[in-house]
Design a protein around this nucleic acid. Structure first.
Length: 739
DNA sequence: AGCAACGTTTTTTTT
DNA sequence: AAACGTTGCT
């Protein structure tokens, strides 16, 4: 049952203001999710709004799931009728039903970032564009254009007198053609095409306006222009639109997030009610003070003062270590200490960093201390080669319009169909205006390719068609099973019998479980539904609260989360804030980094420890690092740390990072200041374990040492892992830890 | 066609 | 440092 007594005055006002546009400016930890869930509950239980008429947009699927559960807890019924999802998922649902009205097929596939990248790569080749033009740049330009709802034609018009701009425009056009031919939409299209649909098909729009009479948007500060357009259209009729955001937490500008969406809201929706939530319930006073010290350096922000009635709490820790290894060791031993003495559970602790690359060394040290952990993001599960291969197979079985998918797997595992053949097929397909797969079935083409090659191609197409034959009766898991067996994918990996192949097989197994999972949750779901579901999964979505593990992730991934204890590492200029931004010398970019720092600090509830390294290896080069300017913006902790480190200054460097700007200087500096042997991993002269000892391996877990051979350069160790069998590995590489 | 060896580049963040 | 692309060899 809903209880308004538990809310503060402003929160209650926000919950009960249900008629007309509402903008909630909610600081970090001010209970905004609580407000949204209570508001939905209030609408349903007090104002008799049908759950079916309520929509809520969240930033991740995980947040959506949590919100559903919370609403369900309060209301007790009907929560499954509310549409709570991300922008992308919501648009996907709409498009699956209606996109045929604007000239697409409803069974379109979704291109993720990697797919788009390969598409652009092909386009660069095909159009013979300037080699200087990186696919990344083209991609981000196209994405930005799409976010701003600029079509390829318009893009060309705006950039006609610029050679580079023209080339990008042509790539954009070709990319659009390619997507269309492949029956594919990219992430941006999901939004864009929905808006297009709404604009062109008034009936459809009206239908959805009638359905979603009450709309909520969480993390509003990170919406982009198309997303705002989507909301504007949907809310145009009833104007019951409630958005919640915090301009200080806008950290996705690089993805098109547009802060003017907050500033403009009141202009677009007349008579908007604005409510501010400024009381923070999450963090201690010390943590909040530090966060405020940092963020107050930003010029472009709505004035607000976040406050708390909480105690000061623990003081903020800041620790400077010699290098990234010592930094990681420090964090690991601290975690070991505070979990052993019972102050925290593993799941209470998060380790946040600016870049994914930082996770590796921390992982290593946690492993050494036997601390259970989970890394969020990084090499996304769904980006791994074996998973992408399986997905490409499933796409091909589902419908073979997606040339990219077909090309990806036509020779995986090796079937003797090489690049020459593939490009012959492709150009034939291009000429005839048919799909790659259809070209593979074309008699005339096969004849011209010669008997040997065409036999191989026939074998491939036969196999795909055979699997496809059962598509409608088979369960998703059955199709999956057929794909990995009949294509020979599984057996090839099994024969390989290496550590890597083993881990690939495990990943495929995990993916299989997800397929089964999907099957159980979505009885009506077909293969395309599964595939689009998979495309929209974010890293954070797979994190479960019941795992008692330390979480490692980027600050971006940590958005919206909170932890009793936070470690924020790599607090160094040129890492955080990143070198790219410092080089740009752009105050607005720096402010975004500062907001990121603000987000990081405000994740902490009870305690935060920030760390930095004096020297660090970045892209293979070692640099001397300087304490992050964000730390320097918190006088209380910076002064303490610098006076402490003064007394123990054991390094006599003539330079530090900030003084080194040219390659030459850096090389000279490296020769002077570093003895390489300090940083190379020494070949192990003796092992810490022997035959019969129990050891732990990063991937395989626990095993018993069966044999050790001295191969001269290195030891070759044979270990029998529990449930995984015997593996041979090199000692210096395997990093086995004695238990 | 397939592979090893070499040279080159690099995202910072992600639905 | 690691991943990627190209080249030249078999």
């Amino acid at each position: 049952m809903i209880n308004l007594e538990t809310l503060n005055e402003n929160q209650r006002e926000a919950v009960c203001y249900t008629n007309g546009p509402l903008l909630i400016l909610a600081g970090a930890g001010s209970g905004k999710t609580r407000v949204v869930t209570h508001r939905i509950a209030y609408l349903i239980s007090r104002e008799n709004v049908k759950p079916y008429n309520v929509m809520a947009i969240t930033f991740t699927n995980k947040a959506a799931e949590e919100m559903k559960n919370r609403v369900n807890d309060i209301v007790g019924f009907g929560a499954d009728q509310i549409l709570i999802s991300t922008f992308h998922s919501a648009c996907l649902r709409i498009l699956r039903q209606h996109i045929d009205k604007i000239g697409y097929k409803n069974d379109f596939v979704i291109y993720d970032t990697d797919d788009s990248k390969s598409a652009i790569k092909l386009i660069i080749k095909k159009l013979e564009l300037d080699k200087k033009l990186k696919e990344r740049e083209i991609m981000s330009k196209i994405s930005k254009a799409k976010n701003d709802m600029i079509s390829a034609d318009e893009y060309l018009k705006y950039n006609e007198d610029d050679l580079r701009g023209r080339q990008i425009a042509h790539a954009y056009m070709e990319y659009e053609r390619m997507l269309k031919n492949n029956n594919a939409l990219d992430f941006d299209d999901l939004l864009l095409k929905t808006v297009e649909l709404f604009k062109r098909e008034k009936e459809v729009l009206l239908n959805y306006q009638e359905r979603f009479k009450y709309i909520h948007v969480d993390e509003y500060q990170d919406t982009n222009k198309v997303q705002f357009e989507f909301i504007k259209l949907l809310a145009a009729k009833y104007q019951n639109i409630c958005v919640v955001g915090d301009d200080d937490q806008s950290i996705y500008k690089f993805r098109g997030a547009d802060i003017t969406n907050i500033l403009n809201f009141e202009n677009v929706f007349k008579n908007t009610k604005v409510i501010k939530l400024e009381q923070n319930y999450r963090s201690t006073k010390n943590i909040l003070d530090a966060a405020n010290e940092v963020i107050k350096n930003n010029q472009e922000r709505k004035s607000k003062k976040l406050w708390t009635s909480k105690e000061e709490g623990e003081s903020i820790e800041y620790k400077i270590l010699d290098d990234e290894y010592k930094e990681a060791s420090y964090i690991a031993t601290e975690i070991a200490r505070m979990t052993e003495d019972g102050s925290y559970n593993y799941r209470d602790i998060a380790c946040l960093y600016r870049t994914n690359a930082q996770s590796r060394i921390i992982e290593e040290k946690l492993l050494l201390e036997n601390i259970p952990y989970k890394i969020v993001g990084g090499q996304n599960f769904y980006q791994r080669k074996e998973i992408k291969d399986i997905i490409a197979y499933l796409k091909t079985v589902d419908n073979a319009y997606d040339d990219l998918a077909v090309r990806r797997i036509i020779n995986v595992p090796k079937r003797g169909i090489g690049l020459t053949t593939i490009s012959k097929i492709q150009s034939y397909a291009d000429q005839g205006g048919i799909s790659f797969f259809d070209a593979c079935l074309d008699e005339r083409l096969l004849l011209s390719l010669g008997e040997r090659t065409s036999k191989k191609i026939n074998a491939f197409t036969y196999m795909i068609r055979k699997i496809r034959a059962g598509k409608d009766e088979d369960k998703i898991s059955d199709i999956f099973e057929k794909v990995i067996t009949e294509t020979g994918y599984e057996s090839e990996l099994k024969e390989e019998d290496t550590i890597e192949a083993q881990s690939r097989l495990e990943n495929i197994g995990e993916f299989f479980n997800k397929a089964v999972d999907f099957e159980e949750k979505n009885e009506k779901g077909n293969l395309s539904d599964f595939l689009s579901d998979v495309a929209l999964i974010a890293d954070i979505d797979n994190v479960s609260e019941d795992d008692n593990k330390v979480l490692l992730m980027t600050i971006h991934s940590a958005k919206g989360l909170e932890f009793p204890k936070v470690f924020l590492c790599g607090m160094e200029d040129n890492l955080f804030p990143s070198k790219m931004i410092l080089d740009m010398n752009d105050e607005r970019e720096l402010e975004e980094e500062r907001r990121l720092c603000y987000v990081a600090i405000t994740r902490a509830m009870q305690s935060i420890t920030m760390t930095s390294a004096r020297r660090r290896m970045l892209r293979g080069d070692i640099y001397l690092m300087k304490t992050s300017r964000f730390i320097r913006e918190i006088p209380s902790i910076y002064e303490k740390a610098s006076s402490a480190s003064q007394s123990r200054k054991s390094y006599d460097y003539k330079n530090d990072f900030s003084g080194i700007t040219t390659e030459k200087q850096r090389d000279a500096f490296k020769r002077k200041a570093f003895n390489p042997s300090d940083y190379k991993v020494e070949k192990l002269s003796a092992l810490s374990y022997g035959i019969g000892d129990k050891v732990k391996h990063i991937k395989f877990g626990i095993g018993t040492v069966k044999d050790i051979k001295d191969g001269g350069r290195d030891f070759e160790v044979t270990v029998d892992f529990e449930g995984k069998g015997e593996k041979k590995m090199f000692a210096s590489f395997a990093k086995l830890v004695k238990l």
